[in-house]
Amino acid sequence: MSVRLEGSVIRLEGECRAEDAEPLLSLLQEEAGRVVDLTSAVRLHTAVIQVLLALRPPLAGPAGDPFLARWLAPLLAATPPG
């Protein structure tokens, strides 16, 4: 299980694959304000990143994966243009 809900925190754990995008999307849409915790995520599939980019939920970190922390987390945290 790579997407897990704990209280109001959604934890992404280990390797998140394309099929994890849908449960993540449902959890985020179910209740506004849920935080996504990237601490133990290793690799996020593009489909998962796309959901985060579209909804821009608050993120809890720091991300455990260096690529995620260096390149993706800043992009996902930034305010959407426009």
């Binding site: 394309a18 995008a21 849908e22 993540l24 999307l25 849409q29 593009t46 489909a47 796309q50 959901v51 980019l53 579209a54 909804l55």
Partner: peptide
Amino acid sequence: GMIDPFTCNL
């Protein structure tokens, strides 16, 4: 409200 997680839109 119509995000399709299976379509790549990037």
